Simulated scan of single mutants.
Amino acid sequence: MAAVIETDVAIIGAGPVGLFAVFECGMLRMKCVVVDALEAVGGQCTALYPEKPIYDIPAHPAIGAAELIGKLEHQAAPFTPIYLLGRRVERLGRDGATIELHTSAGDTIRCKAVIIAAGAGAFGPNRPPIEGLAGYEASGAVRYLVARREDFRGKRVVIAGGGDSAVDWALSLKQVAAKVTVVHRRPKFRAAPESAAQLDAAAARGEIEMAIPFQLHALKGDGSKLEAVVVSTLKGEEKDIPADHLLPFYGLSMELGPIAAWGLALDRHHVTVEPATCATNVDGVFAIGDIASYPGKLKLILQGFSEAAMAAHAIHPRVFPGEALHFEYSTSKGVPAGD
């Protein structure tokens, strides 16, 4: 049911950075409403790789994406955020000093500031240009994410791509799949150096088969059940790789959606911000995480966490004008109870 909601801060995006922004705002006594187009919190961590291990979260040598989201949600819970899921923000307006956001479900959110933490906007997988792809997608033979590793136990899996997702899932699925083959057009991978080294070592031990330099060419099967993936070289040489599943990891196609019409300064579909505050060129609107752009930006979750803290501190004077903010460490301050 559509509603009018009054809050201090509206956060667009319920991914890891958006959830941590709830905590940072809460530590400064600011209430939050979180809007996300997905039906569950977690953003890409939930929608694309819930079981994928993440290695660069401080104090966690490895943590599953879904587990990370669960901990962030638990961390934000004392501040009782309101989650508006399964809808997206369509319009931004103003009523004096108040910002009004209007969602696709008819909700109106009245707030003092907006934090855009929407990753890189709406996303979907980049699909390989292969004939008959839709039938294999419908049956689950071709997938663009791994929701459960157990789905691939004892299966022959072909992974295509050269980035972190391709390398990380090859290393993970080799533990359960009957066979894992990685298809890439060149020997060099765009993954983290340590992960790429682990892939090379696994290939040398015969745990993973490498199809290099090849690219996807066609699928063989009955249009639903996959029998083999056909790969080819640039010279036209072809070979069949017996397979039950194909996982093409060619990244995501991004679009900002309605946010693009808000008058924000953009840099290649990303929002330009001030590095010290994460403020955009639109008064009262801030951007953090992958969608934010500034010199020296690193697309890491941990940098997004830092940006969430900076944005919250920059927003505090808007919510509590004239009130001095005496910064205290959480170890001495503790976590205030939600109202």
Rank of each mutant, 00 (worst) to 15 (best):
A196T: 10
M210N: 01
R205M: 14
A202G: 08
A211K: 02
Q198D: 15
D222Y: 06
A201R: 12
S195N: 08
G221D: 04
M210Y: 06
I212A: 04
Q215W: 07
A218I: 00
L199R: 01
F214S: 07
R205W: 07
A204P: 11
E207D: 12
A197W: 08
A202L: 10
D222N: 15
I212R: 01
E194S: 09
L216S: 01
A204I: 08
A201L: 11
L216P: 00
S195F: 12
I212S: 02
Q198P: 08
K220N: 14
E207C: 06
G221A: 07
S195G: 06
E194V: 14
E194Q: 05
R205Q: 15
A218Q: 12
A202Y: 00
F214R: 02
E207T: 06
P193L: 11
I208E: 01
G206F: 07
E194M: 11
E209G: 07
P213G: 09
A202K: 03
A197F: 03
A201Y: 01
L219F: 15
L216Q: 00
E209L: 08
A196I: 09
A197S: 13
L216M: 06
I212M: 08
A203K: 09
G223I: 15
G223P: 10
E209M: 05
I212T: 12
A218C: 03
L199Y: 03
I212L: 09
G221R: 01
D222K: 10
P213T: 02
A197L: 04
L216C: 05
R205K: 15
P193Y: 02
G206V: 02
I208N: 00
D200V: 00
P193C: 12
